[in-house]
Amino acid sequence: MVGGKAPLYTQSRSKATGVLLGPQRLAVTVNEELEALAIKGEVAAITAGWQEREAEDEELQAALGNRAVNLMLHARSDAVGRDDPELFVAHRAKQDRLRQLQALYRGRLAHAIMAARELQAAAGDRALIESELEAAIEAIRVLDDQHLARIKGIEDEYDDAMRPQDRPVVQAHREALAEIIGRAGAVAIAGGHVVSLLTRLRLFDLAPLIAGRPILAWSAGAMCLTDRVVLFHDSPPQGQGIAEILEAGLGLFPGLVVFPHARRRLRLSDPARVALLAGRFGPAACVALDERCKVTYDGHRLCAAANTMLLDFDGLLRPMEPRCP
């Protein structure tokens, strides 16, 4: 919190139920979860993160027992762009501004993270260092919140000016989507390109629609459902490997920051890095969402599979509690 105000990221009015899963490509578990949730009927599938490969969902169909109905959000958003060029131009201009903002934030963030890392490595009076480190982490949190506020400002400005939800072409698609989701027993959201996915979930304002159904989401799909979408990689071939906030998520699974492919993308054996992530995003639970991991939410409380690890404030990984029965 900053200055006693409420957090600036999404506080969704809707609450969802369902399960967030680790990557599915090499270890499919979504079928087991469907069975465990006793889902009947069709499953509304969102594969917009696959972008132009959205419709190539044969493997997903097989995993979902050939009962998926692909919502085709990527294709629908292309159609919106074609049918409503004014909205398309305004949307692209907004995305350009957001990209510029992200670059500016990234520059400030690098300095703030370096300050914290220097303090983590400092030698001397621990009490003094800890106090400075706490302040340095708080500075990062303030920066993250400021970034979220600025994004929200740009998004609000765009919504006020363009009122996308009131535009006939968007409304028509949303009605069709509502009909499919309404008759589905569950919603499955696959991973992929997180911006492509989140942008389309927002364009059709799907949060209230999917909140009423059990949701199974993995990788980028899981990221989009939490409060904050954090982009991360500790060892990229270019750049410094500093996790950055992309924007607010849909907030349907609150109190979490998820890190898909954590074993591959994060240096989990480096306590300083783990502690910095946990401290920066706490009190939200920072969850390593690797293959076969899961976090379940019943609308009130979270629980996790035994293999699902939490990035803890002391830099260690611990099994996330409570465990799912």
């Binding site: 490509r25 991973g191 390109h193 997180v194 990788s219 980028a220 990221m223 990229p236 071939p237 270019q238």
Partner: peptide, 18 residues
Amino acid sequence: LQTALSWLFPGPLWMVYE
């Protein structure tokens, strides 16, 4: 090759979580 190609043609490392 990793340093060179990832600089010349950067991939969507930060954006894609499959």
